[in-house]
Amino acid sequence: MQKLYFTQELPISLDEAWAFFSNPVNLKEITPAHMGFVVTSKHHGDVMYPGQIIRYIVKPVLGIPLKWCTEITHVEDKKYFVDEQRFGPYAFWHHQHHFTAVAGGVLMEDILNYKVPLGFLGNIVDALFVRKEVTGIFEYRKKVLTEKFR
């Protein structure tokens, strides 16, 4: 099991941060284009809720499309939400998104626990590729958000 932790402060209100990050449609905007990320599920309204299922297509390796399905398992309005993979490329995926109002804006914290399938071989693939790719996605996100919310 791997654990990654990322933080970012943005000069926006807690309300604005929550509205942006709790809407699955905005995920494409903060995901690198080479990932071919598309939300395929339809969502009714803008309110995130426990039990919400979000389906995606993602192309993480060689442009090969993979179906990915996550469930929003926990939500505390304007504080945090958790998405967990129900099926997809990982053996385990648990992603916490935390939001805290701070002087001048909002602090966002991402806590990601994941495991690549295939046991020992998966550990090698993670060390050579997956961890770098996941970290790169969060670095890309940080850059895009910094530009978007100057």
Rank of each mutant, 00 (worst) to 15 (best):
K42R: 14
A103R: 02
I64Q: 05
F129E: 06
K67W: 05
E109A: 14
V125Y: 04
G36A: 09
F87T: 12
E147F: 04
I124F: 10
V102Y: 01
F81I: 11
D77Q: 13
F99G: 00
P89L: 15
F20N: 07
I137T: 14
K59W: 09
Y49R: 15
V125G: 07
A17L: 04
P50S: 12
F99Y: 08
F99R: 00
V75T: 10
K143T: 13
V25F: 10
E84I: 06
K148P: 05
G119P: 03
S41H: 13
Q2W: 06
M108H: 00
V130I: 15
H74M: 11
R141P: 08
V102K: 06
L62E: 02
G51Y: 12
I64F: 13
K59T: 13
H98D: 13
H34C: 09
H44E: 15
V116H: 03
K28C: 11
F20H: 09
D15A: 14
A33Y: 15
M35A: 06
K28M: 14
H43Q: 15
E71D: 09
N123C: 06
H94A: 06
V106D: 00
I111P: 00
E133W: 07
G36N: 06
K115D: 01
H98I: 12
E9I: 02
L27V: 14
I30H: 05
I124G: 03
W68M: 09
F92W: 10
G45Y: 14
L27Q: 10
F149A: 05
A127L: 12
M1D: 04
V134N: 01
L27G: 08
T70P: 10
V82L: 12
F81N: 02
L121G: 03
L66Y: 09
T135F: 10
A127I: 04
L128I: 12
R131I: 02
F37M: 15
D77W: 09
I137D: 08
